[in-house]
Design a protein around this nucleic acid. Structure first.
Lengths: 200, 200
DNA sequence: AGATTAGTATACAGATCTGTATCCTTTATG
DNA sequence: CATAAAGGATACAGATCTGTATACTAATCT
């Protein structure tokens, strides 16, 4: 049996410690503002070990973003699906989950939006990761719109995704967690407008 | 007559050159990624002159943000008011103006959103500048909502502002300038829902 | 014209950044 | 036990960052 076998409840490997620390620091302070030395200090792992696991800072950045991607999506979708049962209420629940997210002490906006903000060059791996994250979120919404039997699910999903993005940055920039409530109110109107009373 | 008198059409002062260069570079590459040396090179002004006009990089950052604030708001509002005549169509025109903004080669998202993304500490001058910018934009929208005779202008303005924010980051992250079209579609629904048929 | 200001050019100090190297210790495994 | 792998501690190289200092030049005001 391999020693590298991942097992539940085991203390995290150095690699995982580094990634989690990177996620936290990049999330709070941004990527450029977070130096390797800072990550080393906060993770309790030496620089040599860091560079044994990751070729460069850029590789750590990408790994951290991808890790957070999976982590966040899992948590977010699970919360939505727990909070409500049918597609329509789940669409609305998205904004309730968002509000609890915005209200956390450790909320510093969307890590992917912030990452793109400091990396303008298009067609880079970082940009792809961020783009894909947003695409996945929209697809999650789209599925619910289809299940709800919306007349034009694609349109509705795009609109609701836009509201969610707007709520995120408004909560961040204007420090108003209740931007989620505004978004939810608008979402309710848009959903009602698209509701097909035949399905469900 | 003072030599520092500003006169139209005069070639820009060193100070203005520095500010404009800073706006451009901060906007494209972000604040942390843009060094003083880079600004010096691109502005054609020496470092000593820069530090004669600004105490520190931070002061230049704030000045640049405030400068861009006025510049952008002026341009944006003027375009909206030129494109349409009555409040309702002006509200919709916001998203047309946004789309041409998104489609520019030099579009790198909203400078203020990006700035906040790399400066998480609240209650700093930088955060105030960014917050005020968003507040002013929302108030611009609010005035139009009131003029339109919306049933709840405050609510409508908050919702439309959210849609605009969402469109900005979606256009930036997903590189889809037509996020503005989606926002406009949703805005039309929200506006119609709030329309009071008594006024105008 | 004379004096002051504004600006150029450039070097430099001190801090910080990414990434590497060296030496030693712990840990796991056959 | 013995050997190899993983990690800790630390110094360092080279680049880049903010901000300052020095010496010279061009413009401007009285």
């Amino acid at each position: 049996m391999s020693s590298k076998m991942k097992q539940k409840g085991a203390r995290p490997s150095k690699r995982e410690q580094l990634i989690q620390t990177a996620v936290n620091l990049f999330g709070q302070y941004g990527i450029h503002a977070t130096g390797i030395d800072t990550i080393v200090e906060h993770s309790g792992v030496t620089k040599k070990t860091l560079y044994a696991h990751f070729r460069s800072k850029e590789e750590l950045v990408l790994t951290a973003l991808r890790h957070y991607d999976g982590q966040f999506r899992n948590s977010f979708m699970r919360q939505v699906e727990t909070k409500a049962r049918n597609p329509k209420t789940r669409l609305l629940a998205i904004f309730d989950v968002a509000e609890t997210w915005f209200s956390q002490q450790s909320f510093y906006g969307c890590m992917f939006i912030n990452a793109v903000g400091e990396h303008s060059t298009p067609d880079t791996s970082l940009r792809y990761v961020c783009r894909d994250f947003k695409r996945m979120m929209t697809e999650f919404i789209l599925k619910l719109c289809i299940q709800m039997g919306a007349r034009n699910p694609q349109h509705l999903a795009e609109e609701l995704a836009l509201l969610l993005e707007g709520a995120i940055v408004t909560a961040q920039v204007s420090q108003k967690p209740d931007a989620a409530k505004i978004a939810k109110r608008a979402a309710a109107v848009l959903i009602e407008k698209q509701r097909s009373h035949e399905a469900f």
